[in-house]
Amino acid sequence: MNPILVLGAGPAGLSAAAEIAELGAPTILVEREAYLGGNPKRWHYSLLAPDLRPSDEILGPLIAKVEGNPRVELHRSTTVTKAERLPKGFRVTLKTGDALETQEVSAVVLATGFDHFDSRRKFEYGYGRYPDVLDFKELEGMIHDDRVLRPSDGKPPRRIAWILCVGSRDLQVGNPWCCRMGCAVSIKQAVEIRQKHPEIDAYVYYMDIRTYGLWEDLYWKSMQEYGVKFIRGRIGQVTIAEGGSQLLATGEDTILRRPTEVPFDMIVLASGMEPGTGTQEAAALFGVPVGPEGFLTPNLSDMNPVDSGLPGVFLAGAATGPKAIPDSVTEGMGAALRAYQYARN
């Protein structure tokens, strides 16, 4: 049997590669970056919602299953530049630096993931102009290192606001979908900060809170146990407050039905999920249809969410839409099984 190609070494790809190897088939795992672990590693995610477990505790074992596995051939800093369809599978060209290598594979799992929305595109919030307006993925790193300080003057903030749905549910930036993670991750960050620094006041500006399913518990706890405060309304713009040292968030408190202009020391943007560059490239390479949002479209998203509908091409993780790590891991397992079944016959 020719090896099965897994594209992308985030949670979904790692899980797929590990399971294919477990089934006894040879696997080629290709990752664009020099490290394994995808976005969670790239942005040094701290604790993961909803159980507040360190991300390394979840990614570590996944990576360990793949690294040093004799059935997994690892290609870091590598991209696929060409894919030709064979009667069964593909002939793919792998590019590492300047070196090109051709391999024949019997099936492909696309686990090419998402990119965080570039918050500079939501220019009203001043991200990229005001140093104390952060993207929440940057705050992850700060919390991870326990150095939550204002980038402008290095002082600890007294009051932080989170703005949800930045680059999500927003026609102005062309992203009408929900990122599914923003609520939970922002609330989790507020909880982490309140745990370590109860003197910092945490406010979340929201339209709806979508901590779906059992994640609701995190939301409830954040209010009751950690005193995180929620204000309903979408912030319209962020400017510099009088005096120059604080940020001014202008919005409407839709419960008070009153405009609010409140100063904050730090403003954190919950940037949404967009189809990753790798996902767009993979769609073109393997001819997988994409939906209006740009994510890969499974053939039958309800019955068989990991099948692309094209022979030998399987999908897993956030390449098909915003997804949490546990869901991505599960889809990696499903895609592994489906790819193995296809390759074996």
């Binding site: 009051r159 006041d201 406010y203 005193g227 405060k229 204000i231 408190d253 008070l256 009153r258 405009p259 609010t260 202009e261 409140v262 100063p263």
Partner: peptide, 13 residues
């Protein structure tokens, strides 16, 4: 002019 809320006071809560 509409009344603008300009600060959040945590003391009562």
């Amino acid at each position: 002019r509409s009344r603008v809320q300009t600060d959040l006071d945590v003391r009562i809560l």
